[in-house]
Design a binder for these strands. Structure first.
Lengths: 208, 208
DNA sequence: TGTACATCAGTGAACGCGCGTTCACTGATGTAC
DNA sequence: TGTACATCAGTGAACGCGCGTTCACTGATGTAC
């Protein structure tokens, strides 16, 4: 049952998308090839028509997740409308802590990525660089020569906060970690803080 | 070959210590019971005389790692001498990124902890609360009602930074992430920044 | 205090299971003539 | 354009391996008398 080239490409894409979700949900090591294929509506045997190994899929899936995130940030920043504020709000929400559809791999499989092969780390690192660029290109930072440095710091704080909020065994503590981090980041950036009480978008709405 | 109670307790402690190191080095899921027992100079069969399951060891080992970190922070803060500065410096060093002996589990197995069982998350969360307390009790924050909030923010930024630095495929990027995070945290706290150029301890020395 | 017995830390082999990967096979697609 | 053949996406079973866990056994320790 050979498939057309378009169908093959579609299947490959589907596997990557499903894998990206499953990896975030259950972890890189705990998610099996058979699980992913089943979730994509296929059987495990066909996997190796698309990928040389599970590791290659890990690299592609994590890279794709990162790229999706970068595109989302870039797109909404270009559209203006306090896009960056929305992203900080959304990133530091309880919803993102549980969101496996568009969650950030740096949070959901962060410590596993540090042990991943070179290909995976390269793909993810490129995504990270893209995020830094996207954030530092935000209009409110245009004049600042420290835009990159600030973007790096903001990302560290956000990713650490969500990582910790996901570990915490107490919902109140999780919320506190997210809230305090958001407040501090807001305080860091007066032009964001100014807007804060005007037109903050509810988290659920900010979720694309 | 039954052992005396003291010896049994010693063996149990040894297993926990070795496990804490191996878990940080290779991850919770990728480290096997047999690996740990071998590293402790034992065979796998004896494991279940000390623990009901691997999961219980995970909880104990991660809890112990956290407690060790808390004790270390508390102790050096009590001793004065810009202890907190030293800890920030040390935490955000390239050395800590590779340090498996006294590295922070929230960094080294962070994303795996979020998926761990309740017992493990409880043990680690208690450690985290201890860290927050220890940092916010630092003398330089004594008068500040926002000490806890600041401690939470600082921890998020530090843990995120080291997580990211460990993932990055480029040493320069890793160093930049650590440096920018350190600079921003220093800038946040003038009394730390004041001291900064006076008596900063070299990282290698700050490593206990 | 000495002796006989129960306990139990540790060994090393085995069990069952799930994983990543391979493989013979199927049959629709794409291609060469 | 039509036909015969090669290709290859997908199937489902099997392979080998490593894992967490169990178990019969050993022999030093602790305990009851």
């Amino acid at each position: 049952m050979k498939k057309s080239k378009e169908e093959t490409a579609k299947t490959r894409k589907k596997i990557i998308q499903v894998a990206a979700r499953e990896f975030r949900r259950r972890g890189l090591h705990e998610t099996g090839v058979a699980d992913i294929m089943a979730a994509a509506g296929l059987t495990q045997g066909g996997f190796y028509r698309h990928f040389n190994s599970k590791e290659h899929l890990v690299a592609e899936a994590c890279g794709a997740s990162m790229q999706e995130l970068v595109d989302s940030v870039k797109k909404s920043i270009q559209s203006g409308n306090d896009a960056f504020l929305k992203h900080v709000e959304r990133f530091l929400s309880n919803e993102h802590c549980q969101d496996l559809l568009s969650g950030c791999p740096l949070v959901f499989v962060g410590s596993e990525l540090a042990r991943a092969d070179h290909e995976t780390r390269k793909a993810v690192s490129e995504g990270y660089r893209g995020l830094v660029e996207a954030i530092s290109n935000d209009e409110r930072y245009k004049d600042s020569s420290t835009a990159r440095a600030e973007a790096i710091f903001i990302l560290s704080a956000m990713i650490g906060a969500v990582t910790l909020a996901r570990i915490a065994d107490d919902g109140k503590l999780s919320t506190m970690i997210l809230d305090e981090t958001r407040k501090h980041l807001m305080a860091l950036h007066p032009n964001i803080a100014q807007k804060k009480n005007k037109d903050v978008v509810p988290v659920a709405q900010a979720q694309k």
